[in-house]
Simulated assay, not measured.
Amino acid sequence: MPDRTQRTITIDAPADQVMAVIADLRSYPEWVSAARSVEVLTEFPDGRAKTARFVLDAGVVKDSYVLAYTWRPDGKAVSWQLVSGELQKAQDGSYELVAQPDGATQVIYELTVDLTIPMIGMFKRKAEKVITDTALKELKKRVEG
């Protein structure tokens, strides 16, 4: 798997509020511009998604894929891996939340995507940067909104 793209942002809200937005996968189409639909396929006993199907439309890139989630017990991190996809052959990602002394939360987002179609590494890293930057900005807007 290639190098991970990592981005951070600070959100003016406590970590549990940020994680509540991240964990509410069903609402992603309301605030994630590329998300057309999200269907939670299976859940853990606490109600958090175990697997979910996403349909994305980001202009020239359209994809349908299933992710499997792992939620850290302390509620401060979540990671996911691709189970199946049309355009992707691998996706590994995570959000880690770090409480700040002023009550804000630093969000660390890591993402690696590998596509079924060949793509020059430079363009792939640029696409990952755009994806992570956009995701963090949309998350901040939703939480602080």
Rank of each mutant, 00 (worst) to 15 (best):
G75F: 07
L115Y: 11
A127L: 13
A90K: 01
G103S: 10
V60H: 09
I117Q: 11
L87A: 09
Y109W: 03
L67S: 05
R125M: 10
F123S: 03
I120K: 13
D92P: 06
K129E: 14
Q88G: 08
R125A: 12
D102Y: 14
D63C: 01
M122Q: 15
W71C: 01
D92K: 02
A90W: 00
W71M: 00
E86N: 03
A127C: 04
V83R: 10
K62N: 01
V113R: 04
V66N: 04
L139W: 00
D92C: 04
L87D: 02
A90Q: 02
D63L: 00
I120L: 15
A127Y: 10
E96C: 12
Q81I: 08
D133P: 14
K137F: 06
Q100Y: 15
T105W: 05
E110G: 10
G93K: 04
Q88H: 13
D74A: 10
A104T: 11
D92Q: 07
F123G: 02
I117R: 11
Q91K: 02
P101D: 05
F123E: 08
V66Y: 04
K137A: 14
D92E: 09
L97Q: 11
A90Y: 02
I108E: 15
P101S: 09
T132S: 10
W80P: 09
G103I: 08
T116Y: 06
K76C: 15
I131V: 13
A135F: 07
G75L: 05
T105E: 08
T105A: 09
D74P: 14
T116D: 00
L87I: 08
V66A: 03
T132D: 02
L87R: 10
V113S: 07
S84M: 01
K89W: 01
V78N: 05
I108F: 05
V107K: 11
L56A: 09
A135T: 12
L97D: 08
A99R: 11
K129Q: 15
T116V: 03
I108W: 05
S64G: 07
P73S: 08
A127N: 12
K137N: 15
D102S: 12
V61E: 02
Q100N: 14
L82Q: 06
T105P: 00
W71D: 04
V78G: 03
V83A: 10
K124W: 01
Q91I: 13
A58I: 05
D102W: 13
Q100G: 11
M119K: 07
D63V: 00
A77R: 01
